[in-house]
């Protein structure tokens, strides 16, 4: 009798484990972000990365949902907690302002991994083991843009338009200044903070003021720069982009954009979670590991030159 029963249990176990392997439940990600997923900046870059991974792994193996416009921190915290309680494998809290909430939430859900950025803080010092973090070295991209900017500027005056002087925006701006100075020590970089991530109007007028005071190359961060790009386009100033490829917004004036490719952080993170590590790692996004990329505008001067050489319109070395 006992033998029959144990044989039955064994068969049941085998069948059910085969069923589990056969079903291969997809990896489920929830993504909480402060602005909209079509902001042409911070949120969109992560959304694009998740789409890329979904295309790579297939919808059967990777699914994600998002909560956009979570600029209210306590709403975001509620969303994060709700996703975790629904058994998502990874909850991405895409904003450094969410860190405070994660510390409270993560310990309650040991089977869910969390990720946030930009920061190098995984709270492992507080004994929390299921939080990853990611941090783009924005200053590297800023430096590249700065070098190019200094070469292209005829007036030697360049402008940077940022939201508030902190986080990624601060790092990108400092890198840009360094790049400019290394190339042309006599150049002048004027930096203006609009005090807001969303004040398109002030960003536009800042760009105008900069151009009026002699700047011919501009750059900037956050979703409000759309206003500045518009002005640069109208006034014929050169623009350097950040976060996503901003060339489609003004093909004639964008030279290059620093793109953050979050897949470089997401891929190893997903691998780690699938092999049982739920946190503790900081993923850097640098030029070296491809987390930062420089997107050259195909319709701009550099892009046209490259294309010209490739298709033979430009003869070099003859």
């Amino acid at each position: 009798m006992n033998k029959v029963l144990s044989g039955f249990v064994l068969v049941a176990l085998i069948v059910s484990s085969i069923a589990i392997i056969g079903m291969a439940t997809p990896f489920k990600v929830a993504f909480v972000t402060p602005s909209t997923i079509n902001d042409s900046a911070w949120s969109q870059s992560m959304y694009d990365a998740l789409m890329t991974i979904q295309n790579e792994m297939g919808e059967g193996n990777f699914q994600f949902v998002y909560s956009e416009n979570m600029f209210v921190i306590s709403d975001a915290a509620a969303a994060i907690r709700d996703y975790a309680s629904q058994g998502y494998d990874l909850v991405i809290a895409h904003g450094s302002q969410y860190g405070g909430s994660l510390v409270d939430i993560a310990p309650d859900f040991p089977n869910t991994a969390f990720a946030w950025g930009s920061t190098a803080n995984t709270f492992s010092d507080q004994g929390i083991t299921n939080i990853f973090s990611y941090q783009p070295y924005s200053e590297q991209g800023g430096y590249v843009n700065g070098v190019l900017a200094a070469k292209l500027s005829e007036s030697g005056i360049m402008g940077v338009i940022g939201p508030i002087e902190t986080g990624d925006a601060k790092r990108y701006t400092e890198g840009f200044e360094q790049g400019v100075m290394a190339t042309n020590p006599n150049a002048k970089v004027s930096v203006t903070w609009t005090g807001s991530y969303s004040d398109v109007s002030l960003a536009a007028e800042t760009a105008r003021t900069m151009i009026k005071s002699g700047a011919d190359v501009l750059t900037g961060t956050s979703q409000m720069v759309i206003g500045a790009i518009g002005v640069a386009k109208k006034e014929g100033a050169i623009w350097f982009g950040y976060d996503v490829d901003q060339a489609p917004l003004a093909p004639k004036i964008v030279v290059s954009s620093v793109i953050v490719d979050w897949t470089v952080a997401l891929r190893p993170m997903i691998d780690a979670i699938q092999s049982g590590t739920m946190g503790g790692t900081v993923y850097d996004l640098t030029l070296a590991n491809g987390g930062l990329k420089i997107a050259v505008n195909a319709e701009g001067l550099v892009g046209k030159t490259i294309e010209g050489i490739i298709n033979g319109d430009i003869k070099v070395g003859e």
Partner: peptide, 21 residues
């Protein structure tokens, strides 16, 4: 809100992030 909920103060540049309007 600070003592009961957030236990720290933060900003996203606007008031909304903290107040939720």
């Amino acid at each position: 809100e600070v003592l009961g909920l957030h236990h720290r103060m933060f900003t996203d540049g606007s008031a909304f992030g903290f107040t939720g309007s």
